[in-house]
Design a binder for these strands. Structure first.
Length: 591
RNA sequence: GGGGUGGUAGUUAAGAUGGUUAUAACGCCGGCCUGUCACGCCGGAGGCCGCGGGUUCGAGUCCCGUCCACCCCGCCA
């Protein structure tokens, strides 16, 4: 390079008039007037206009003439006022650089899409040319926000005395929870490392080792199917502390989040966050991650339904299920019959065999596929129970408890959005506490750990472990933001006897527990402090803070829904020598 | 594994009922233009209509299969 860049494009203002500067960056656009050539030059700080005037610098002008989108140039020139030609849409619009010298550092191929904030290019194309997509403002801002967030997280935790400690990526498979990614061992034929689903056991061992306060911004891996908010590798802010109760962990996380939202988004969030038990969250809002930016609680009409004339309702109750109602205030006015049918069809995906509904028109008349099954009295009782007003729309699900809650909980979120009950600028946090220790796995006919198998029970529930494990509540807590779970943690079991019992309840035999977690069980026996912690999903946090619809928008190089990277074309085949060395035979898929 | 949406120039889209040479905008190329900033004007190039099969005199369009991307269920904290 002939010159040395000394100024970022986006930083120039009227006060810099008269300065001689050297700027470098990408050609955003070019406007050739035959005489003067105008170039918008972009770097990560913004855009500045360059003017190439043949009467000022003939050589530079004749080269500028041939500049095209995304060419990389370095330019020396004088900052001059634009006079009457100010561009109010650019922060640098009061000035321009009258170019004296220009060096083209790199010509660019015509990009497949323009580098602009608003494009509607298919994600397929954008992912293939991720390096170009990442030049665009929205992605630059998202990654900038991400970097700021991790900075604030580190600073806050360091100030609180947490140590950033690393844990291995090549680990042992502990087949519990998600499917592991495996790494074959060359030295040990037929044996495999597993990539961590989270550093759970290792951070607990740090507590046993006396480090007292640990954190790590840790990459985690889970080989499961993807969603808009799920990638095969993702990042957790992983935290663990000794000699603590849930409140201590919550306090720390509240400070972290408060600082993050203040410093990155200039949002003041109120602490302490409200708390709600799992039972209340699910009972009232259907989901264990309630979006509390709007009301619309569920109404339990099981008792009424048990004795009603509508067989679908009555028999659901008879089989041990429940019936709940979700009333959308004024929803009947704005929702057409076709839209209702559509909503019903879409939400049956959560397992409900059907979703009944009643619309009460403005004139008080009822419209519904089910009212004909009820007596006058029943209808009156029902309206009373759900508080049905003119213009309302109410939905019902009658099924097993979990199906009813899941379906109506998701329906509630849909209606909240449809009816514009949600303020997009609000950040609503809530702690959900007292999760059940176990959930029943119908397929495998055994209990599973709802959080993970190292979670301690609520002390007053510990005595129930023997008889009714389903009733045992855990010292587990989730932090929920706007209806998305952004983190979860618990107080851990620090007693090897209790840990062994929990494994037993989970259907893991002594031998199995020994084989999988023997080292950990042994470690617990050497003096373990009571401890607990939490992990925040960094990707989701950044996604919510930046208002992006997908975590792909806050991850530099994300994978597609089928786990491929369109830019690098991973995963890919490897040579037979490589496989041989790893003692691996590839068995082709059937068909 | 299942349900849904989409795939036509580089990009985004249009292309009723099957029918002449597949349109447009932006981008690209050439020319003109000294105050543009969505610059403007004139001209031009650019297509395995995702892929494979089938029906038909004839398929971008209809049928079957398949691949890819996205959203969702299952799965996954």
């Amino acid at each position: 390079m002939q010159f040395h860049r000394d100024t970022y494009c986006g930083t120039l203002r009227a006060e810099h008039e008269g300065n001689e500067v050297v700027v470098a960056g990408w050609v955003q656009s070019y406007r050739d007037h035959g005489g003067c050539v105008f170039i918008d030059l972009r770097d990560r700080t913004g855009i500045v206009q360059l003017r190439f005037d043949p009467s000022v610098a003939e050589g530079a002008h004749s080269v500028a003439d041939r500049l095209r989108h995304e060419d990389v140039v370095i330019v020396k020139g004088a900052v001059v006022s634009r006079g009457d030609n100010t561009n109010d849409r650019l922060p640098t619009g009061a000035i321009e650089i009258s170019a004296l010298e220009l060096q083209v550092l790199s010509k660019a191929k015509t990009p497949p899409f323009l580098i602009e904030d608003d494009i509607d290019t298919a994600e397929l194309v954008r992912l293939k040319y991720r390096y170009l997509d990442l030049r665009r403002g929205p992605l630059q801002e998202a990654l900038l926000a991400r970097a700021k967030i991790t900075g604030v997280v580190r600073r806050t935790l360091e100030e609180e005395g947490f140590l950033d400690l690393e844990t291995p990526i090549l680990l042992k498979s502990t087949p519990e929870g998600a499917r592991d990614f495996l790494v074959p061992s060359r030295i040990h034929p037929g044996e495999f490392y597993a990539l961590p689903q989270s550093p759970q056991i290792l951070k607990q061992i740090f507590m046993i080792s006396g480090f007292d306060r640990y954190y790590q911004i840790a990459r985690c891996f889970r080989d499961e199917d993807l969603r808009a908010d799920r990638q095969p590798e993702f990042t957790q802010v992983d935290v663990e502390m000794s000699f603590v109760e849930p409140d201590d962990v919550m306090d720390i996380i509240e400070s972290v989040l408060t600082n993050v939202f203040k410093e990155v988004a200039n949002k003041d969030i109120t602490t302490p966050f409200p708390r709600m038990t799992y039972a209340d969250a699910v009972g009232t809002y259907g989901l264990d991650r309630p979006d509390l930016r709007f009301g619309m609680p569920l109404t339990d009409v099981t008792d009424w339904a048990a004795n009603c004339d509508f067989k679908v309702f009555a028999s659901a109750v008879e089989r041990g299920g429940i019936v709940k109602a979700l009333r959308a205030e004024g929803g009947g006015v704005s929702t057409s019959r076709t839209e209702i049918d559509r909503i019903v069809k879409d939400h049956c995906a959560w397992g409900a065999r059907g979703i009944a509904w009643i619309r009460k028109n403005e004139d008080g008349s009822l419209q519904s596929p089910i009212v004909k099954f009820f007596s006058e009295t029943e209808i009156a009782e029902l309206q009373e129970a759900v508080g049905l007003q003119n213009g309302d729309l109410v939905f019902f699900v009658a099924d097993q408890t979990s199906v009813v809650h899941n379906t109506l909980g998701n329906l509630r979120n849909t209606l909240g959005r449809r009816l514009n009950l949600i303020d997009d600028d609000e950040f609503n946090f809530v702690w959900v506490t007292e999760f059940p220790m176990f959930e029943w796995d119908e397929d495998e006919q055994r209990h599973n750990a709802m959080h993970h198998p190292f979670t301690a029970p609520l002390s007053e529930d510990a005595s129930l472990l023997g008889e009714t494990p389903a009733k045992v509540r855990a010292l587990a807590y989730d932090v929920v933001l706007n209806g998305t779970e952004i983190g979860g943690g618990s107080i851990r079991i620090h007693d090897s006897e209790l840990q062994a019992r929990v494994f037993e309840l989970l259907g893991i035999s002594k031998e199995e527990a020994e084989a999988r977690f023997g080292f950990f069980m042994e470690a617990l026996r050497y003096g373990t402090p009571p401890h607990g912690g939490i992990a925040l999903g960094l990707d989701r946090l950044v996604m919510l803070l930046t208002g992006k619809p997908s975590i792909r928008d806050v991850i530099a190089f994300p994978k597609t829904q089928r786990g491929t990277c369109l830019m690098t074309e991973s995963p890919g085949p490897v040579g037979s020598e490589q496989l041989e060395e790893l003692h691996i035979d590839v068995v082709p898929d059937d068909n």
